[in-house]
Amino acid sequence: MSIQHFRVALIPFFAAFCLPVFAHPETLVKVKDAEDQLGARVGYIELDLNSGKILESFRPEERFPMMSTFKVLLCGAVLSRVDAGQEQLGRRIHYSQNDLVEYSPVTEKHLTDGMTVRELCSAAITMSDNTAANLLLTTIGGPKELTAFLHNMGDHVTRLDRWEPELNEAIPNDERDTTMPAAMATTLRKLLTGELLTLASRQQLIDWMEADKVAGPLLRSALPAGWFIADKSGAGERGSRGIIAALGPDGKPSRIVVIYTTGSQATMDERNRQIAEIGASLIKHW
């Protein structure tokens, strides 16, 4: 067993022997301040990774656009098919120029040779490549099948209805392509620590998230040296922004954090800054 596999296998073990965790309302004060600064709703939840206990939450059962955070769930569904012998990570998928959609920095470079399922998941999570996500959605049967996968996990809230990039439209009061912070946090925890996926697939999923290259201005910008984070960000229309993450000190994750916002007129930089400040408060009061 590799060191990384050992780390993920012992996530519940280490967490069980940690000192009790206590909620700190100071972080919620910052979440509410972010709402004021952005002029928009902000949803927040913080779960203990081992027990699933909610440590703090704000608007945990209000719907927010998922945006690209759905790509972690998508690759979880792909990995479940791999575990069941219905898919192979090494299978190569070929596609054409007509398949390319807006923001496809990886797939646009491989029109000639195609990409493997493993490479597509890596591109979808680490670079948020939209064509990679659409190609992977095709392998599982489309958005409705991802929703069905989530329902089978016990998540009857999260739903995907459309493809990239239309799913980022974020129309107010439109339930399409949305989740709730509580539902997303619980589902992410199941994917990373539950028995739904094999140990190898859980490790692969967290490795992809740990290698995320496009979430630097968010929670990662607030992390002290030595902290662990595996995350996936999302951005959408109407001032929408979000991030889902597993993080913790001492090089291992111990909490799940989900943050979503929508309806702001603020710039992307300002949305990023507010999420980073929430992260800084979380870490300060850990």
Results as ranks from 00 to 15, higher is better:
residue 153 M to T: 11
residue 88 Q to N: 13
residue 140 I to G: 04
residue 197 L to E: 04
residue 117 V to I: 10
residue 43 G to C: 03
residue 278 I to N: 00
residue 226 G to R: 10
residue 4 Q to C: 10
residue 171 I to G: 12
residue 169 E to H: 11
residue 155 D to A: 01
residue 16 A to L: 14
residue 197 L to M: 09
residue 177 D to S: 02
residue 128 S to G: 02
residue 242 G to H: 02
residue 147 T to Y: 04
residue 232 K to R: 06
residue 245 A to V: 04
residue 111 L to Q: 09
residue 184 M to N: 01
residue 53 K to W: 09
residue 114 G to Y: 05
residue 219 L to K: 04
residue 245 A to S: 10
residue 226 G to H: 11
residue 141 G to F: 04
residue 15 A to R: 01
residue 82 V to C: 11
residue 285 H to C: 11
residue 168 N to I: 05
residue 127 M to D: 07
residue 269 D to P: 10
residue 144 K to L: 13
residue 158 T to C: 03
residue 72 V to A: 08
residue 173 N to K: 13
residue 18 C to S: 11
residue 106 V to G: 06
residue 111 L to Y: 09
residue 181 P to M: 02
residue 254 S to D: 13
residue 19 L to C: 15
residue 165 P to K: 08
residue 136 L to R: 00
residue 227 W to P: 00
residue 209 M to Y: 00
residue 116 T to R: 06
residue 134 N to A: 04
residue 91 R to Q: 07
residue 240 S to K: 01
residue 204 Q to I: 10
residue 80 S to H: 14
residue 127 M to P: 01
residue 61 E to L: 13
residue 25 P to K: 10
residue 127 M to Y: 11
residue 149 F to P: 01
residue 68 S to Y: 00
residue 103 Y to L: 04
residue 124 A to R: 00
residue 168 N to Y: 03
residue 111 L to V: 15
residue 50 N to M: 15
residue 164 E to H: 01
residue 56 E to C: 08
residue 161 D to P: 01
residue 37 Q to W: 13
residue 233 S to W: 02
residue 83 D to F: 02
residue 55 L to S: 06
residue 143 P to R: 03
residue 85 G to A: 09
residue 104 S to C: 07
residue 82 V to R: 07
residue 38 L to E: 06
residue 7 R to M: 05
residue 234 G to R: 00
residue 103 Y to V: 05
residue 39 G to N: 13
residue 36 D to V: 14
residue 118 R to K: 11
residue 105 P to H: 06
residue 196 L to Q: 15
residue 279 G to M: 04
residue 86 Q to W: 10
residue 179 T to W: 00
residue 47 L to N: 03
residue 112 T to L: 15
residue 130 N to M: 01
residue 275 I to N: 00
residue 102 E to N: 10
residue 138 T to I: 11
residue 75 C to D: 02
residue 253 P to W: 07
residue 2 S to M: 12
residue 209 M to V: 01
residue 192 L to T: 07
residue 81 R to G: 06
residue 30 K to G: 05
residue 79 L to M: 11
residue 41 R to Q: 10
residue 120 L to W: 00
residue 88 Q to F: 13
residue 92 R to H: 10
residue 248 G to L: 00
residue 228 F to R: 07
residue 72 V to F: 03
residue 196 L to M: 13
residue 205 L to H: 01
residue 89 L to W: 06
residue 258 V to N: 02
residue 243 I to R: 00
residue 115 M to S: 04
residue 52 G to P: 04
residue 177 D to A: 02
residue 43 G to K: 00
residue 111 L to S: 08
residue 186 T to F: 15
residue 179 T to Y: 00
residue 278 I to M: 09
residue 161 D to W: 02
residue 254 S to Y: 09
residue 147 T to N: 11
residue 63 R to T: 09
residue 199 L to Q: 14
residue 60 P to G: 15
residue 19 L to D: 10
residue 39 G to E: 15
residue 153 M to S: 13
residue 253 P to R: 08
